[in-house]
């Protein structure tokens, strides 16, 4: 009996789908995201990936990727998992995190530097939402102003936007992801939508109902800031079509700091040399830039 019901309902569904497809004239939005990291990420990066994986029901989490040089292998890997997006987090030096967002078969890849990373667990925010509910994606107006930001926005919508009718998605909408461009960086926040009790008020005509709802947001987490570095035309390869000149690599920052500290030592060393040369000039230890020869009255000769 159950089999019969199943088959019937299946046929119904397929029929309705077929009916839907041509009428809309738009193919269905199917997105799948492969979520993985490289080896050598810190625990924070790992936790961030876990958080993102819980937020993305259309995501597929995979084991750590072994190679850092052969990133093109990620294309095959995502095709293996039927994913058309890839979110790859690379850890370098056990410090820096670089996030790659790619539209896999031949779309562009964007590389970001992750900063100010706080995972859901360490933030202690009171917000919470359904696992796998579809978020509202709130973009800043700046995203529409420059082509590279438009590309980034498209990548974000593909990866972070849960497609309609995704496998594990929930039917209600209770959180919003905010993407803001400020200071040349992209700030990402995740809020729960908190609706207060609805109060239905009847209009004077008595027909229309005006619903006044108090909305507020409670942050859920995680929080992080992305600095776009490079956009490549291919997926994990291809020519560079955008490069951020304002980006300063963290290695550069660290080396500058170290160099700044080193100048102190250098100054001291110079002082020592200068002092020695001054003493020589006084002729206390030398005579005309040469050591004085040992005479009979030298201390060592007298008391040897």
């Amino acid at each position: 009996m159950a089999a019969v019901y199943k088959s019937l309902s299946k046929s119904d569904k397929t029929a309705s789908k077929k009916a839907d497809g041509p009428s809309n004239g738009i193919k269905k939005n199917r997105q799948r995201v492969l979520i993985l990291s490289s080896r050598g990420v810190t625990y924070r990066h790992r936790h961030l990936l876990n958080d993102l994986a819980t937020m993305l029901p259309h995501g597929r989490k995979d084991a750590k990727f072994d190679s850092k040089s052969k990133l093109y292998e990620l294309n095959e890997l995502s095709e293996l998992y039927n994913c058309n997006n890839c979110l790859y987090l690379e850890g370098r030096k056990g410090l820096d995190g670089y996030l790659f967002l790619s539209a896999v078969p031949n779309g562009p890849t964007c590389k970001f530097h992750i900063q100010n990373l706080h995972t859901m667990e360490e933030l202690h925010f009171t917000g919470n939402c359904l696992k796998g509910s579809r978020p509202i994606l709130s973009f800043d107006a700046t995203f529409e102003k420059e082509p590279h930001l438009q590309v980034i926005k498209a990548l974000f919508t593909r990866t972070f936007g849960v497609p309609e009718g995704a496998r594990k998605s929930k039917p209600f909408i209770d959180h919003v992801m905010g993407f803001t461009v400020a200071d040349g960086k992209i700030w990402i926040r995740n809020y729960q939508i908190n609706e207060e009790e609805q109060s239905k008020v009847k209009n004077a005509a008595g027909e229309e109902e005006i619903e006044t709802t108090e909305m507020s947001l409670v942050e859920i987490g995680p929080r992080f800031v992305l600095t776009p570095i490079v956009i490549q035309e291919g997926s994990f390869g291809g020519p560079i079509i955008y490069q951020n000149r304002e980006f300063v690599s963290p290695n550069q920052v660290r080396s500058d700091l170290r160099r700044g500290k080193a100048t102190r030592h250098n100054a001291r060393a110079e002082q020592t040399v200068a002092r020695l040369s001054r003493k020589e000039d006084l002729g206390l230890r030398t005579k005309g830039a040469q050591r004085q020869p040992k005479g009979d009255l030298d201390t060592k000769m007298m008391f040897s």
């Binding site: 738009i26 939005n29 509202i136 709130s138 800043d140 700046t142 995203f143 919508t157 461009v181 200071d183």
Partner: peptide
């Protein structure tokens, strides 16, 4: 397309 397919909102003014 219906809004429910993408759920993307772009703000009117730059937040920065």
């Amino acid at each position: 397309v219906p809004f429910a397919t993408h759920q993307v909102v772009v703000s009117a003014e730059a937040t920065a």
